[in-house]
């Protein structure tokens, strides 16, 4: 699904173009993107998949993740708390929180995503350089949460973006968020150079 930026200039025409884009999102994003789960199988794949170069690159990647904040609701405050001195997110190498997607590695989606915001989320995700990962934090980002049946809320951000780690909670404690980040580290270690995110194709198989 391509994002076509409207090249129209009056506000009314831009709004109509935005409305068409949002409606096309609602029509197209009906089923969730499949999650890769083979990396959860601890011992079997480690020796088969990884070469020593892969391991070195993954080690470097794992310890220097720059997060991009995408805080849209109350879970964002837990993320702020996690990055503060008490829970100290920088000890995981997430020292510099980036506000530009072009410098970020992992997108922390913290909060409810409405259909109107989904277009922006997709656009920001497309601007991030590879390799990139997504952590969905909180019930709303994972499944829509309380607002799942609502007219304006995306029932799960995994309909729009491929999600690597889900952190449940409403909102999750900063410890839960840190546990999710350590799980992301575990996933990055399993990744290879040509497929760092262990992403799946449409048939649900790993693209290798």
């Amino acid at each position: 699904m391509e994002i076509v930026r409207p090249d129209l200039y009056t506000p009314e025409e831009a709004d109509i173009a935005e409305g068409k884009l949002i409606n096309s999102f609602i029509e197209n994003c009906t089923s969730p993107i499949p999650d890769p789960d083979r990396w959860l199988d601890e011992e079997i794949h480690r020796n088969i998949l990884l070469t020593s170069l892969d391991m070195a690159v993954a080690w470097a990647r794992q310890r220097s993740i720059f997060p991009l904040i995408f805080g849209t609701a109350c879970c964002a405050f837990e993320m702020i708390g996690a990055s503060g001195p008490r829970f100290d997110l920088p000890r995981f190498g997430m020292d510099i929180i980036r506000f530009s997607p072009r410098q970020a590695d992992v997108m922390l989606i913290t909060g409810t995503i409405t259909w109107k915001m989904a277009t922006a989320a997709k656009m920001i995700y497309d601007q991030m350089p590879e390799p990139k990962w997504v952590i969905a934090v909180g019930a709303c980002a994972i499944s829509g949460g309380t607002f799942r049946e609502s007219y304006s809320v995306v029932p799960g951000i995994n309909r729009i973006l491929p999600v690597d780690v889900y952190v449940p909670g409403c909102p999750p404690r900063p410890e839960a968020m840190i546990y999710g980040i350590t799980r992301l580290h575990a996933k990055i270690v399993k990744g290879t150079i040509d497929n760092p995110g262990l992403s799946l194709n449409k048939e649900g198989k790993e693209t290798r």
């Binding site: 009314e12 709004d15 109509i16 935005e18 409305g19 068409k20 949002i22 409606n23 259909w115 109107k116 007219y151 304006s152």
Partner: peptide, 20 residues
């Protein structure tokens, strides 16, 4: 008089009692 929160092309009025 223009839409404030929802997007253009949204069908129906969500806060009406007979919506859904």
């Amino acid at each position: 008089l223009k839409r404030l929160l929802l997007w253009e092309g949204f069908n129906g009025y969500p806060l009406r009692r007979d919506y859904l």
